[in-house]
Amino acid sequence: MIAPLVIFDLLLALTIVALAVAVLCLRDLFAMIVVFIIFGLVSALAWVRLSAPDVALAEAAIGTGVTGALLLKTLHHLRYVTGRLGQNAARGLTAMAPVPVAVLLANAAFCGLITLGLAVAFLGAPAAGPGFEGLVAQAMPQSGVEHSVTAVLLNFRAYDTLMEVVVLLAAVIAVWQIERGLSEAPAPVMGVVWQGFARLALPVIVVVGTYLLWVGAEAPGGAFQGGAMLAAVGLLLLLTRAYVPQPGHRGLARGAFVLGTAAFCAGGPSGGQRGPRGL
């Protein structure tokens, strides 16, 4: 008799692999993004089964929610604004231009190298070793927070996390360099029901994001997940056209990003990490 949860886990793993294959094989860009979002949600479920609710929250919020929204926005931009994809391509099927064989081969080689490296690392790792749990548990009183993941992320390896925040800042700067002009895309008319929903949901998302940040001190949650929720607020504001970026606001936004990073340098555990909010 196999335990029912083992069967569930096997089904989950098979589903994840099947979804990954589906993402790669689909030709329709929109369907691809939708399947990618489903893939993220199912992998979040897998992280829950692996008893890693922190990673599950991050996967659901950042890897699925924010990334999915950004991908959809990019697709909308490509199809209807810049007109880079033709009318036929906008309906779905054909790629714009055939990809050169050399690029394909180089990509395949890189993917193979990464898979090989992962396999070597996985097979070379000690099977079910003790890990760092004992060390972390010993050092917990010094950290000032009660949740071990937050302690590791923001206290014991604060320099690494700080560097990640700086990388985010660099990414934002790069995005601003690329996207010099403001998008003139006409907002899709979405109707009163949507506006009412946005009006109801926006304040609640702000509260939930702040709650995630706050609860990170003693339970799963924390800066990255909370930051992703706040980024969702930004996306909703942009999508509903409740806020239209003005050229005059750019200085303010730049200041806010630098201030966020500086506050993280200064603040330690409760540092105001701004999340992947680069738009």
Binding site: V189, V192, W194, A201
Partner: peptide
């Protein structure tokens, strides 16, 4: 509560898009 109203809103948006298209009648 929030999943319920979010899914209702999503369904409304999908139906609306299918009926009117992106720039449809408000």
């Amino acid at each position: 509560f929030f999943v319920a109203i979010a899914s209702a809103t999503c369904s409304h948006l999908i139906a609306r898009y299918a009926r009117h298209g992106a720039g449809g009648v408000p």
